[in-house]
Design a binder for these strands. Sequence first.
DNA 1: TATTGTTATACTCTATAACTATA
DNA 2: TATAGTTATAGAGTATAACAATA
Lengths: 166, 166
Amino acid sequence: MTETPASLTPTQLRAYFAFTEVSSLLKHAVEKQLRDAGGLSYVQFELLARLGDAPGARARMTDLADGVVYSRSGLTYQAQLLEQRGLVTRTPSPDDERSTVLTLTDAGRSVLADVFPGHIEALHQLLFATLSADDVDDLARILGQAADHLRASPPRSAAPRRRKAS
Amino acid sequence: MTETPASLTPTQLRAYFAFTEVSSLLKHAVEKQLRDAGGLSYVQFELLARLGDAPGARARMTDLADGVVYSRSGLTYQAQLLEQRGLVTRTPSPDDERSTVLTLTDAGRSVLADVFPGHIEALHQLLFATLSADDVDDLARILGQAADHLRASPPRSAAPRRRKAS
DNA sequence: TATTGTTATACTCTATAACTATA
DNA sequence: TATAGTTATAGAGTATAACAATA
């Protein structure tokens, strides 16, 4: 067991407050851009972007749910919305009939293409414009480390699925 | 006008992805802790914490709304919830009868006290445990800079209040 | 019996617009 | 006329639990 201090240092507090503030302001700005440019919520964009990166532009619901921090029913809900808009298709997996495979359609890829440039521009102007290359290096290294730690951390908010205590 | 590159560097991408991942995982974990320890949402915690820091443990609705990124009606909603639980009081301001002043009650301060230790512990274990003192310094500096920039940026999602175009 | 995904449902949160009251 | 805040309302999103189908 590692002992936990009862308080944070002033610098830790500053880092935390700055982090939450950047997180909040950046998320709002990005969500607005995604909504204006493609009518997408952040989650929907993330799902489409993951599909766009996936081999064959397809992925199983469960694999998507593990990446995004969502309940399965929430993912079903979002997948329905995307399917209704024709941005993805849902088909049963040939390998395992229980699984549903989401596939990005041409229309989905087109919406992604509509949205990407503005997304990148927003990130550049809001986040990266004021940071030096060294700052970005540091940020990537430090936050990458933190992300690794958090990902491995037990208190996952979206636990894979509860296991019986027996 | 500053020219905007059409894409991000690989390091910028890594920094961005790490940032969003940390943001998402940390927020979920912190929200769970606040809910379990004090039945508070993150917004409610933030409001109570701001009142706790404010002189006289009191603040006007508008001043709170400017800090938190919320619509006025959303703030009214949250203030009602907090008042119903007896954690704050709402009284008209003596200076300006249009204003409402929120004041933290003893019960509110008590809930804050219940919640703080676990909040700090969560931050320490999830975020700071793996970071060196230098890393925290860098993080505070870099994100502080980004926060300053974002705060000053025109596309505020919660604009103070729309002004007539005339 | 465990796993994948869907459905039904209820709840929280947020924003817009209309409204009241005060400056 | 402008500002502070509330109310009414409607919509998006999320999670839990029960369920059906497959492994």
